[in-house]
Design a binder for these strands. Structure first.
Lengths: 206, 206
DNA sequence: GACAACATACCAACTGGTTGGTAATGCTCA
DNA sequence: TGAGCATTACCAACCAGTTGGTATGTTGTC
């Protein structure tokens, strides 16, 4: 109980604050000062833990990706026996995540940052892609298993469909932000679910 | 030959430059100074035509939306007789636009800006949504006609599917930016085309 | 007493925006 | 037609505030 502080505290707090503030205001608009202020830490502490603001951004992508991995690993759908049920369960889980929360809470740090920095900071861009690709690959595993069982002869590509699930989700967030309405994101993700169902339903008919 | 300048020149040039630079570097990272420099105009001229940087952003969304409307109005697919052919033609046209160009050239100003400013500037957010919604509504017209002819009893909503086409395209751009590879956007849009085909193919079977 | 984890104080560069002015154009009415 | 005037289009210099980043402490712990 004694060591509540002193441990790598500021670092984790700064990362968590970055995840939150960047999703709210964007990367450039999130100043180092506001980041420090929001966690009650000085600039010296910030630059003690991160060489630069961009390094914080890259660390935040890893922080984000790890947290997401844990969240999805714990989810119920993993326990379904049929991989197609798992896949649909994954989409439903994403619907669930959207429903409960506000826009800045449920949108993706990586998608937000990469739109802003893809041309001006290759390092941040690559870090964002790594996170997205990592998650997409997890989804692709379910897709591959579902395909092997239910649609072995289908012509579509497994990795490509995995990336597509993420594209739809990212696009759903863009439109939801524009309309300032989370439910729009849910509507879009429902189309994704129908697409997957049609893809497998169609295969079974052949 | 004498009046090379003087016409409402600076304003249009600033708008065109904004469309380009914002897509490259993002909104916040595009400074008024760099905008002025890139078109060879002073700051005084900028603030003569626009009350603020945010007003420029809103004017740019209208400029963008009008240009896009013209581009799509001229496209060949409009001449197809069957509205379903038109719809597929629209998707193919978007594929075509992606194929020929670099990422900052082919991506959407509205989607880029709204990700950055949706929380911090409601005015910009609304202007972006208006542009997206306007374009989505045009697509929805084709969808409605195609549905009336080929899938009158289908359960899906016309406006919703129109928005979905835009969500997929926006998401495709996000992923393409992350991978720094335009062809990925094309892959995603191909999934959209397959979805539409499945939607109508499925309806015909009933 | 060495080293990590912070705090304090500061800086040069850049930010959006304002100032007061000038040159060219359009509009009015004799 | 054209003189007189108002409006528009634009410019150069400047401002206060903010930016990311640094140099130099102080403190607690092994």
């Amino acid at each position: 109980m004694t060591q509540t502080q002193t441990r790598p505290n500021a670092r984790e707090k700064l990362l968590a604050a970055a995840v939150q503030l960047v999703r709210e205001k964007g990367y450039d608009a999130t100043s180092v000062d506001s980041l420090c202020e929001s966690v009650g830490v000085t600039k010296g502490a910030f630059f003690h833990h991160f060489k630069s603001k961009d390094e914080l951004a890259i660390a935040a992508t890893q922080f984000w990706t790890e947290n997401a991995a844990q969240l999805f690993a714990k989810a119920e759908y993993n326990r379904f026996e049929d991989p197609l049920d798992q896949l649909i369960g994954y989409v439903d889980f994403r619907l669930q995540l959207v429903h409960g929360s506000t826009l800045p809470e449920c949108t993706c740090l990586l998608g937000t940052m990469v739109q802003e920095k893809f041309e001006t900071s290759p390092a941040i861009r690559d870090a964002c892609y790594e996170g997205i690709h990592f998650h997409a690959a997890e989804v692709s595993k379910m897709i591959a298993a579902a395909k092997a069982r239910h649609a072995p002869h289908a012509s579509w590509n497994v990795e490509n469909l995995g990336l597509y699930t993420q594209a739809v989700i990212q696009g759903a967030f863009v439109l939801a932000k524009a309309k300032n309405d989370v439910t729009l994101a849910a509507d879009m993700i429902l189309h994704l679910r129908r697409y997957i169902e049609l893809l497998f339903h169609h295969a079974k008919e052949d």
